[in-house]
Design a protein around this nucleic acid. Structure first.
Lengths: 339, 339
DNA sequence: TTGTATGCGTTATCAG
DNA sequence: CTGATAACGCATACAA
């Protein structure tokens, strides 16, 4: 037997389908007596609203598309939690799309906005395809896009992020306060906006401390564990050897430490390592990683709120959340070294 | 202006909407001439099929619901990748639902099957609510459910898993081969089926080696990092101190090692630690973790294939995939200890 | 307060 | 090969 429809419920309750629909959506406009009959009919039949029919009728899916570059990356999951929280409170369903970093996939997922599967999108990464050509403004009926964490500066995109430059400065300042004067930097991938901003923060902190940034101290990475391992090989050839390194994210920092350890260099005794992100494993890692904490859950929640706000015809502004340095055991005072 | 509909396309191409629909779904049944006109009209208008209308009409959403207990747990993400792969090749959209382990949420998500948002579900954890009361069989029009990794034995559920008992035996055998005779076990949460099976494998391996399993050596955990830390406190009180421990998963193993290290116990010199799962961080961890590798991506892919198969009116069987022990540096030969 | 009737955008059936 | 048309299940304007 097929799924019960609103009509089945109506027949059993002895009312019209309009009344059933009203019972479900504006219960207060219907008599308590009929409401009870209808609701019990709903229970009896096990009726569940057909969302396809509803979406078609109300021209809305009550769904938000969340585009993630790599769902396997633990960094994103806590953002998702924040989104999930706010969304489910608002009765919104989340459609998660994992692009695996591939443009083609992202392009495909973009169609979910066009074909009505979703009413808006949350991008957890720098857009690879021109989502922004979509009408992003809040004109009625438009499907807004909010970029989390990696908004391009200068675009008029709605976004939620931290002050990456400032946060990187904070991190490097911590190293400076520990007495380090020779601080290397392991960067993210070349094209990434976060790479640029965190590197800028690194340089600014150095300059403010009266140290001229040395390009040779900036080692190219790609946020991956392996790139951290590779970076150590280049790091150890630096002469003199820096006493600390600021890594653009935690995973690469772990790779770096792992390689350092294999090579007999102790962290933090021989070299202090600072990460960025404060992913879940940062605190379990050996040594527990000093890093920059991003309020990921809040970022997700805030982004979802932005979307709700746009849907409500308001005109929300981009938001910048605070990031904090969390000190653990991968950083220590600089060893004394004769100049 | 509103989204173009099939009607707009038809008008511009100078054909009927039926023809437009045919061009999109069975292009070969239409003249090349008209097809070209239609397709170019599609391009011109930027037409995208309204999935709500389509779903309503064909009574199918071409969507699979994937229920995850915790999307932040890196264990699940690779399974998702496998699912994604097969699904997108088949033109299926994935709807990911994160229950956070809460029954209530899971119950809510189950509705996606009832309200037609999804045509079937993949459960990445032991079902908390009676999904299985849903018609799981492959009778026409039914919405099948496939359980990945944590199928309850005895139920007639479609499932994809590894031989957990056998895999745990493999792991413990490795420890035995290294000369360990006193091997502890850090279990998973009490109610979990995986906990039971891995513990059983642990016991069987011991028995086959002529060692009677000692309940005191089985420390209760919950798969979390913190429970690994807590377990170490109980472990160190064991007398004599075991020379090895088999943990029911990698995260708890990491917590254990982390605590051991903090207490001055070296891994693997003082105690060998074996994990289970081979999560992403297992190889970066210090020391790199010896563990049991689960073919997660394959498991996801296989599960999705099972679903496609049911939809195709076939009668697929549950599948069991092979797991392998991967040896890294958290395990070593047992130290000599006078009996 | 409740019922009737219309249309949301598609697909599929049936004629032409 | 193509066109007209009837559902699909629901929400709502309008009548009662």
């Amino acid at each position: 037997m097929a799924r019960p429809t609103i009509e089945d419920v109506a027949r059993i309750a002895g009312v019209s389908i309009a009344t059933v629909s009203r019972c479900l959506h504006k219960p207060d406009v219907v008599t308590k007596a009929t409401r009870d009959r209808v609701l019990s009919a709903v229970r009896d039949t096990g009726y569940a609203l057909n969302t396809a029919a509803q979406s078609l009728r109300i021209r809305r899916s009550n769904t938000v598309l969340v585009v993630v570059p790599d769902i396997g990356n633990t960094f994103f999951s806590e953002i998702l939690r924040g989104i999930q929280q706010v969304a489910s409170d608002a009765g919104i369903t989340i459609l998660i799309a994992d692009t695996g970093g591939q443009r083609l996939r992202e392009e495909g997922f973009m169609r979910n906005l066009l074909n009505g599967r979703a009413d808006g999108a949350l991008l957890l990464a720098e857009p690879q395809v021109p989502w922004l050509d979509l009408p992003v403004a809040n004109s009625r009926g438009v499907r807004p896009v909010v970029v989390i964490s990696e908004a391009m500066p200068g675009t008029r995109t709605l976004s939620v992020e931290i002050d990456n430059i400032g946060a990187a400065e904070l991190a490097v300042n911590h190293l400076l306060e520990l007495g380090h004067r020779s601080i290397a930097h392991l960067t993210g991938p070349g094209t990434n906006i976060l790479t640029a901003m965190r590197r800028e923060g690194y340089r600014q902190a150095l300059r403010k401390a009266g140290i001229e940034p040395d390009p040779a101290m900036e080692i190219g990475g790609d946020f991956g564990v392996a790139s951290g391992v590779a970076a150590f090989a280049r790091f150890r050839q630096l002469d003199p050897l820096p006493t600390a390194i600021f890594c653009a994210n935690d995973e690469s920092a772990m790779g770096f430490i792992s390689a350092a350890n294999a090579a007999g260099l102790k962290v933090p005794q021989d070299v202090s390592v600072m990460g960025f992100d404060d992913i879940h494993f940062a605190q379990v890692f050996l040594p527990p990683l000093s890093t920059v904490h991003q309020p990921r859950s809040d970022m997700g929640a805030e982004a979802m709120r932005l979307l709700l706000s746009v849907w409500a015809e308001e005109e929300p502004q981009p938001v910048v959340l605070p990031a904090t340095v969390v000190l653990r055991e991968s950083t220590a005072r600089a060893p004394f070294r004769p100049a």
